[in-house]
């Protein structure tokens, strides 16, 4: 299936959940927050939050800003 990850197309195995996506991005344990279709998903719920085709996933972090 294909999801939209941070605004760009991203191929993902069918049935993959958020925890698997974050692990594949090597971001497990990093200071990131995740939302699916503009709904924030707390990190403790990533495992089991199965993604569907065309889901829009945002993965964000803190950077320098004023």
């Amino acid at each position: 299936m294909q999801i939209e990850l941070n605004g760009k197309p991203h191929a993902l195995a069918d049935g993959a959940d958020l925890a698997q996506l974050i692990a594949a991005l090597e971001l497990s344990g990093k200071a990131v927050a995740v939302a699916v279709n503009r709904q924030v998903v707390p990190s403790q719920l990533w495992a089991g939050r199965v993604l569907a085709d065309a889901d829009r996933v945002d993965v964000v972090r803190a950077i320098g800003g004023g």
Binding site: V32, A33, V59, I63
Partner: peptide, 12 residues
Amino acid sequence: VAIRRVNIGQDP
């Protein structure tokens, strides 16, 4: 701080 999308593919 600002909140921004992670650059996918950048050194995590």
